[in-house]
Design a protein around this nucleic acid. Structure first.
Lengths: 216, 216
DNA sequence: TATATACGATACTATTGAGTTCCGGATCTA
DNA sequence: TAGATCCGGAACTCAATAGTATCGTATATA
């Protein structure tokens, strides 16, 4: 949810007289907030950092958001679906082909930044359910949704059994990527993602562990 | 310039005269630090909280650790292996039996607290490699090690193929547990852990997805 | 027993940062 | 054009907290 159109954070309304709020500044401020969030985490982030990065005055920020917390929630919520287009999923005819096709270097890079943001928010998630929901919807679910849809399509065409635990399996890659990046602190590269597909996901849906002979 | 000539946090020396340091207080302080860490996260944790929880003076803390950061690193490092005993792994004769046997309610509870601590540390991990290493060794690796050892034993007795990607698979459960608890904010219960074993791990090592007929 | 040091408790200092207010200048509506 | 409100910027208030110092007391060594 974005901030309200005609009122500011404190509930003030559009002025009948005088200059109107310049909403072209909103995106700059939210982008700056996400950058600072990724670099320093929620607690390390200061309003001054965000304001100066966006070349804005602090007053401009507080005219739009009542507090640092609301700014962060809005920033996280607004990055939803910035990089994933569900209407353009790969369709190669096989589940393995589709899964491999979702691996894009741009997708990996974009994912890394979102993971940094998630790490910076982690300690807040247990204290702010609204933030947790926004972070989940913006960072995590889009990734799982891609795999879920590809697997459901594989069920439809009879490639895999409908008994497969698709809900759990669709979260394997997002989970392992977050874990490897944030906790193990190893690089997430194509080889790792392919090994998840060939060593975990496909065997788990009954597509026997095939030595992947130059298919991907 | 520190005020202490004979002992200080960075280089303790036994005094030649006078009262000796009471090292029985150390564990209380470290335990208090872990509790506060789990409840409030690194940034939310204050030295006063830790001191009062441990019924200690702040001076007592600063006599032992030079800073908040060093106290936290020490606290995390000292909880290593507090709950897992690698010399007493289950041995039921089948991989499934062993994996199911590792599910204990006490293990789940203990894991939840460690996950809270990990969440509280998350934003620090990218800035402090020493802390990241301590957290990984204390919280994450012990869990993966159990699964790794059980799977290696299954290879030894010929139950599963040596081609299995055991290194990746051993991190599936720790990863999915962290993900479900911290990000999805769903409960981690026995049913979820069993579904990981039967729906992901066993199929992935070539033990066909069997409908688990009251075996566990 | 005298001395040095640890202890818990508390007061203190210095810094940081959220949020507010004010400035001079720009911009929009009446 | 005039007044209201925006803008970036900077100064300000106020609360929180890391870290230091001190007090009265307890305890171990010489």
């Amino acid at each position: 949810m974005t901030q309200l159109d005609h009122t500011d954070a404190t509930g003030e309304q559009t002025p009948k007289l005088g200059r109107k709020r310049d909403h072209t500044r909103d995106a700059d401020i939210l982008d700056a907030a996400l950058e600072v969030l990724a670099e320093t985490g929620y607690d390390g982030m200061t309003i001054d950092m965000v304001a100066s990065r966006a070349k804005a005055g602090k007053g401009t920020l507080y005219r739009r958001w009542a507090s640092k917390g609301e700014l962060v929630i809005d920033a996280v919520a607004c990055m939803k679906n910035s990089d994933i287009d569900l209407s353009r999923l790969p369709d190669t005819g096989t589940l393995r082909g589709d899964l491999i096709a979702t691996i894009k270097s741009r997708s990996i890079e974009d994912g890394e930044k979102k993971l940094q943001i998630m790490a910076g928010l982690a300690s807040m998630l247990s204290r702010d359910p609204e933030l947790a929901e926004a972070a989940n919807a913006a960072i995590v679910e889009p990734r799982a949704t891609v795999h879920r849809m590809l697997m459901l399509r594989a069920v439809d065409r009879g490639e895999i059994s409908a008994d497969s635990d698709i809900e759990t399996l669709s979260h394997i890659t997002p989970s392992m990527v977050a874990y490897r990046s944030l906790i193990q602190r190893k690089t997430v590269d194509r080889a790792f993602l392919v090994s998840l597909i060939d060593g975990v996901l496909l065997p788990a849906v009954g597509l026997a562990h095939q030595v992947p002979s130059r298919v991907g």
